[in-house]
Simulated scan of single mutants.
Amino acid sequence: MASMTIRNIDDRLKQRLRIRAATHGRSMEDEARDILKTALAQQETPAGNLAATIRARLQPLGGVELELPAREPIREALDFSAS
């Protein structure tokens, strides 16, 4: 088995770990090992396309048909020349 040393842990974090370990009736090292094992056992979902994710979530709700305004002809460019 490998061992690991973690330095520069915030005092409040260490205190919370100590309390959590005592609550579960084990050492701080055992508690930290269990926290790491639990956190790393969870499957990470890969980042996907944001637009596709939003579409997939909203598609069951139905869509809205929007009325598109008629296109107008292009306007003449403004003349900024001093005459």
Rank of each mutant, 00 (worst) to 15 (best):
M4W: 00
G62R: 05
A39M: 04
L17R: 00
E65D: 14
R55Y: 09
A21I: 00
S3P: 05
I9A: 05
Q59L: 13
L61Q: 14
A56K: 14
R7G: 09
I19P: 02
A51I: 07
P73G: 10
P46I: 01
T5I: 00
S83T: 00
K37Y: 14
G25D: 00
D34W: 03
D11M: 10
L78D: 10
R71M: 01
R26I: 01
I9L: 14
Q15L: 15
A82M: 12
G25M: 02
E76C: 04
H24Y: 09
D10M: 04
G25L: 02
L50T: 05
S3N: 11
A2V: 04
L50Q: 07
R57P: 08
L58F: 06
V64H: 14
N8L: 12
L50A: 12
N8C: 07
E65M: 13
L68C: 08
I19A: 11
K37H: 11
R75F: 14
A70G: 10
R18Y: 07
A22S: 11
R75C: 04
D10K: 06
I19D: 15
R26C: 00
A56F: 04
S81R: 10
Q59K: 15
L40S: 05
I54L: 05
R18I: 11
M28R: 01
Q42T: 13
E31D: 02
Q43R: 15
S81P: 03
A51K: 06
A39T: 04
A47V: 09
A56I: 09
A41M: 11
D34N: 09
N49H: 05
L68Q: 14
M1P: 02
G62E: 03
E76G: 11
P69C: 02
L17I: 04
D34Y: 00
I6V: 06
L40D: 06
L58V: 04
A77K: 10
T45W: 09
A22C: 05
L50N: 06
T45S: 09
D34C: 03
R16Q: 12
S83L: 15
H24K: 10
I35R: 03
T38R: 11
R18W: 12
Q42A: 14
Q59T: 14
D11Q: 11
M4A: 07
E76T: 14
Q15N: 13
L58H: 06
R7Q: 10
P46R: 02
P46Q: 02
S3E: 05
P60S: 11
